[in-house]
Design a protein around this nucleic acid. Structure first.
Lengths: 344, 344
DNA sequence: CTGAAAGCGCTTACAG
DNA sequence: CTGAAAGCGCTTACAG
């Protein structure tokens, strides 16, 4: 190998380039490019010489350079709240599968529910010139994305709509799902029903609360302010909220949990109780069917959410001129026991 | 919105470049570069003019071009088996956090436990010139990575070692963890203990089986071949395997489940049974403490696995000349009831 | 069938 | 303090 003194201190660690391959094979640069990209118009003999040089040098095309020239990076960005939240697992995988089918790589990052961090991450992805973005927004003002979208970055929001810009969004029917779940509890005879949800600035949390209120109102049940608690979903806060509604003279007899994180903690709190309290949770949870009682949930299809968003993204990229659309997926009530417990 | 005729057929959608900014501000290209990168040696007045031009044009630096020139992409690749598997959630997040602390983005992809797909993905990442790779390998021959590593791509394997190359690896003590878990069952009086694990070609599966055998041998218990079942971890296969060991004259009285996927299915099978069968699972599972009985597990720290690997990766990138190392993290037996059930 | 030249949008190395 | 030239490793547009 004569690669030692080739370049001074190495970029990309001294990798051979098409130029090196061309020199070794005794052909022009463009011929190497043709062979590497499988373009026609190279005689078998020339091709063989080039292939040999490629193998001997261990050449691998630098897609960074290719991207610069071609203008598309064949990569998309996925910004979500927390890579470790089980809700995003199937969603991420679905996005990845669609991306893969379109030959694109997935750049993944978490906003940690922080609008500034979301923006920082999104703009970093734009600076890398991802072809498109799938965003589960943390913030409520996405005007910072306008120049990017105008410049051609395909963008689809998932799970929550964009703020102050008009963009595609794919979401679950949070309002309807919560309303149905709460109506189910009411149908079971409950009147004092608690709602524990995420921070009210988060669209899904607000929508689910709205669904809760609608179901209560439909049934003519006045809502006590103490039955509703919105805030961060860490176990301590949720635990306090649940305990608060469960004590006193007139405790709630049922709880609607606003998402999977809340449900898990409420299940823990209820397990410690000496009386039975009904529970319906938004989002399905693993093993929820094997608890005693099984956890009744309003399930949403996270994979379908991701798939729909990613497919929409690639339709944008394929040049379809689409007007921004709002796609809402239905939820499904799964009865497993906890939501069918009668009032104490 | 005027998104209809938004794109012509342009590259990067007609974005302004540093050249455009320079022209508008009436300065040289290099001055724009200085301002954009916060380099010193620009008078306040010049800087202001450039900033105005940047704002007016909506300029955003193209990191693709920057990368080509600088030689480092400030991105790392993470290849795992399945983005949707809860085991990888905390691991991914830990890798992301370390990457973020080092100013790098994370490109994420699944191998679906297919060696060819792993290689394809890894090489695609190398073609994008990621600075480093964190790989949970699906295959057992990674010689294809040799030229990449020689060219300077930092590489750390996680959860399973690399095959046929000498590379850093961070893993949990699968052998010791499984041995301890099985020894715990034996200490509880069990002698007919089943082992259901992943495909034997997967390192962790083989190691855990070895741990099972070691514990049995230490206790002087001859192992019946029918007590061991290795294969894919889809629910159908695991269910059949469990049912097989649980029937007949001399059924197993306890099962050791080789990973979280297996545990979840075995829990389901045991829940349908009219007799109590003990269970210890490798990997912790959410809500495992709330089942009846609670699921005893050999827990590994997935986040720590990811964090350790990523930190090691960046130490490589920071130029430390490190010999390939094998870092093994301890596991922890968590008793919750299922592993303490006596033999029938 | 083949290749030299120009260019993608930046940074580097250098000169003023 | 400022900027023109060269170059990163490819592809595009063109000419032979």
């Amino acid at each position: 190998m004569d690669r030692t003194a080739r370049r001074t201190e190495n970029r990309y660690g001294n990798r051979p380039t098409m130029k090196d391959v061309a020199a070794r094979a005794g052909v022009g640069l463009k011929t190497v490019s043709r062979v590497v990209n499988g373009e026609p118009g190279v005689t078998p003999d020339t091709e063989r010489r080039v292939q040999e040089a490629i193998a001997a040098l261990g050449f691998r095309r630098n897609d960074s350079a290719r991207v610069l020239r071609k203008g598309r990076t064949a990569s998309i960005g996925l910004v979500l709240e927390d890579l470790a939240d089980p809700f995003y697992g199937p969603l991420s995988r679905a996005v990845e599968e669609v991306a893969r089918a379109h030959g694109a790589l997935l750049i993944n990052g978490s906003s940690a529910e922080d609008p500034d961090r979301e923006q920082e991450l999104v703009l970093a992805l734009c600076a890398r010139r991802v072809d498109g973005l799938v965003v589960i927004p943390a913030g409520d003002d996405h005007r910072y994305l306008e120049p990017e979208i105008a410049a051609g970055v395909a963008t689809v929001f998932v799970d929550r709509p964009a703020g102050r810009i008009d963009a595609d969004v794919v979401l679950s029917d949070s309002f309807g799902g919560a309303r149905d779940g709460v109506a189910h509890l009411i149908a079971g005879g409950h009147r004092r029903i608690g709602f524990i949800g995420d921070q009210p600035r988060i669209h899904t949390a607000a929508e689910r609360l709205r669904g809760y209120r609608a179901a209560m109102e439909d049934a003519g049940i006045p809502v006590d302010e103490r039955w509703m608690s919105l805030g961060v979903t860490d176990p301590e806060r949720v635990r306090r909220a649940a305990e608060e509604m469960l004590k006193g003279q007139e405790p709630v007899t049922a709880i609607f949990a606003g998402n999977n994180r809340v449900t898990v903690t409420v299940v823990r709190v209820l397990a410690e109780l000496d009386r039975r309290v009904a529970l319906v949770g938004f989002d399905d949870i693993e093993l929820g069917d094997l608890l005693q009682p099984g956890v009744t949930v309003v399930a949403q299809d996270a994979a379908q959410l991701g798939r729909t968003a990613a497919e929409r993204l690639f339709r944008q990229l394929d040049g379809a001129t689409l007007l921004p659309e709002r796609i809402e997926l239905p939820t499904r009530l799964i009865q497993r026991g906890s939501g069918e417990l009668p009032p104490a």
